[in-house]
C-alpha cells in the first residue's frame, strides 16, 4: 500500500477554515462585534442580555380573527410602569404566602424598556419581555434562577399583561428555540401552576372563552389616584402572611384627606365618590 509522504495533510481551504475560526474567536474579545445577521427582529429589540429581552413584535393573531388595535404609541412614565408591575403578586400551590412577580433588578430593567417600547410601538404591535431573577434557595444560602415572561400592550386606557410564565425554572444551557422564554398569547391560554392574586385596580381579562387567569388588566389612572392617596393596594388574602404592598409612599390620614379634597375641588372625582372615599379613609383612624 502506498505510504503518503509527510507534509500538509489537508488542502489549503481546510487550513483556511481553521484559521478563520480562530481569528473570529479572537475578534470577539477585541471590540464590539457587528452582527453578521441583521434582521427586523434586531431593530426592535430594545434590551438583550443573554436570554433576557424586551422587544417590540407584531400582535399575535390567528387566521380569520380580527385583533383589536392597541392604543400605541403611548407615553407612560417609568414610575407608572414600575408602580403597576410592582403590585402584581402570585401564589403557588401548597404555599400560604404570596410573592411579588418582579423584584428590584427585574423592575429596574422593565420600567425603563417597557415604557420606552410602548412609546415606540404601533397600534398593531405588542411589547414582549423575558427577565431572569435570582431567588432565594436553601434557606437563603444560595440562589436559584427563575424567569418571568409576558406580553404587554396598552388598550382602552389600561395596561394589559399576558404572562407566559412566572418564576419558571430557568435552564441556562437549554436550546431557546425549543424552550423559549415565551410571552403569553391572546389566543392560547397557557397552562401553569401559579395563581395571580386579584388586587384593586387589577382584573383578569374576560373574553369570549371565559376569564383568563394569565391575562391581567391594570387600571393605571385608578392606581395613580390611589397612589396619590397613599392607599393600600391589596386586600389581605386568606392565609397571606406577607405585608400588604402600598402604591407609592404611605401617607398619613391627614395628607390623604387633603389630597382627596384637592381631587374634589379639581372636579376629578364626584361628590359621591368624595364622600365614600372620605369615610374609607376615616375608617383607618
Amino acid at each position: 500500500m502506498k505510504n503518503d509522504s509527510v507534509g500538509f495533510p489537508l488542502k489549503t481551504s481546510a487550513w483556511g477554515v481553521m484559521f478563520l475560526m480562530l481569528f473570529c474567536l479572537g475578534a470577539t474579545g477585541c471590540s464590539t462585534v457587528k452582527s453578521l445577521v441583521v434582521s427586523d427582529k434586531d431593530r426592535k429589540e430594545l434590551f438583550k442580555s443573554r436570554d433576557q429581552y424586551v422587544r417590540i413584535i407584531d400582535q399575535d393573531s390567528v387566521k380569520g380573527v380580527k385583533v383589536t388595535p392597541n392604543n400605541h404609541p403611548v407615553s407612560l412614565d417609568e414610575e407608572q410602569v414600575r408602580m403597576a408591575l410592582s403590585t402584581i403578586e402570585f401564589m403557588l400551590p401548597g404555599q400560604d404566602k404570596s410573592f411579588p412577580v418582579f423584584e428590584k433588578p427585574e423592575l429596574d430593567v422593565l420600567e425603563k424598556y417597557i415604557s420606552s417600547a410602548l412609546a415606540q410601538a404601533g397600534p398593531d404591535e405588542d411589547v414582549t419581555f423575558g427577565v431572569i431573577g435570582d431567588y432565594r434557595a436553601v434557606y437563603g444560602l444560595a440562589k436559584e434562577q427563575m424567569y418571568t415572561s409576558g406580553r404587554v400592550f396598552y388598550r382602552d386606557g389600561k395596561l394589559n399583561i399576558i404572562f407566559g410564565d412566572i418564576h419558571g425554572k430557568y435552564w441556562a444551557n437549554a436550546d431557546r428555540r425549543l424552550y423559549p422564554l415565551a410571552p403569553g398569547s391572546r389566543f392560547k391560554p397557557g397552562t401553569h401552576v401559579w395563581r395571580l392574586l386579584s388586587q384593586p385596580d387589577q382584573e383578569f381579562y374576560a373574553g369570549p372563552e371565559g376569564v383568563r387567569s394569565d391575562w391581567i388588566v391594570l387600571d393605571l389612572a385608578s392606581m395613580e389616584a390611589r397612589a396619590a392617596l397613599g392607599e393600600k393596594a391589596a386586600a389581605q388574602s386568606p392565609g397571606m402572611t406577607g405585608g400588604q404592598p402600598f402604591y407609592g409612599a404611605q401617607k398619613s390620614i391627614e395628607e390623604r384627606l387633603v389630597i382627596l379634597n384637592d381631587l374634589k375641588n379639581k372636579k376629578m372625582i364626584t361628590e359621591e365618590e368624595y364622600e365614600k372615599k372620605r369615610l374609607d379613609i376615616l375608617k383607618d383612624l
Binding site: A137, L141, A142, E144, Q145, A172
Partner: peptide, 16 residues
Amino acid sequence: AKAAFVVGGENGWQMS
C-alpha cells in the same frame, strides 16, 4: 431536597 444554583451576580459575574 431543594437544590441551589447561583452564587454571586451582583457585579455581573455569576457562578452556578
